[in-house]
Design a protein around this nucleic acid. Sequence first.
DNA 1: TGTATGACGATAT
DNA 2: CATATCGCCATAC
Length: 238
Amino acid sequence: MRLVSTAELKNRTNEVLRTAQAGEPIIITRHGRPVASLMGLAGGDLAGLPDRAAAARAPSGGYAYSAFVLPFGTFYVAFGPLGPAFARIAASPGAFERDAARYLGTLVRRSAPPGWLARAVREAVGARRVFGGPVDLSRAGPFEREVLAALRRIPAGQVRTYGEIARAVGQPGAARAVGTACARNPVPLLVPCHRVVRSDGGLGGYSLIGGVGLKRRLLESEGALPNPPRPQEAGRAR
DNA sequence: TGTATGACGATAT
DNA sequence: CATATCGCCATAC
């Protein structure tokens, strides 16, 4: 990972882009604070994406989706010109297609996973890096978008409370609404809503298939839980 | 425009 | 410590 200031970005654009293309994640900083990231794209990565002309011709048509078999289920991701737009763990392609069509307002067709998407899923699930790639949040409201943006700033291995996110987006009293926004996250895992927990130490909810059990599993695999449950000693006191 | 609904939080019991 | 209650706030209808 490399940190690049706005000045560097402007004055050494080509070098920065070359670095990104080489596969090293670039974090853009402003006033010393990370504000955005660049993800390299290899040739052919965009093969599954509709081109600009196609998008203009059919503004609401043309989402593709790919399936990824993960340890806890099959993860489906629908993507358009702006990036991943809808993702779910689903029991079958048909179930995902139905949910995706309802959310996106258009049919989705299956496609081989573009390289950038496979990498994004790998990074998001393996939690080896923060997935900072593009995400299509155009159907989310302004508050929801801010919340989701805040979630993306939570490093793997860490958690935040719903209240902390509320304060982070300037609505200190909106913890509950943050929960609602998380529940409506169109791209779970890619936007890590599982890293938000309750202020009382509870995990809170998780609406993906798998429920809080999956949420716990994800957080454990990221090393975010201080005391992984040890079944053998569960309940034992002193 | 009003009303109902949550992946919440603090407090009381 | 678990449950109940009430306040909160952005959405969906």
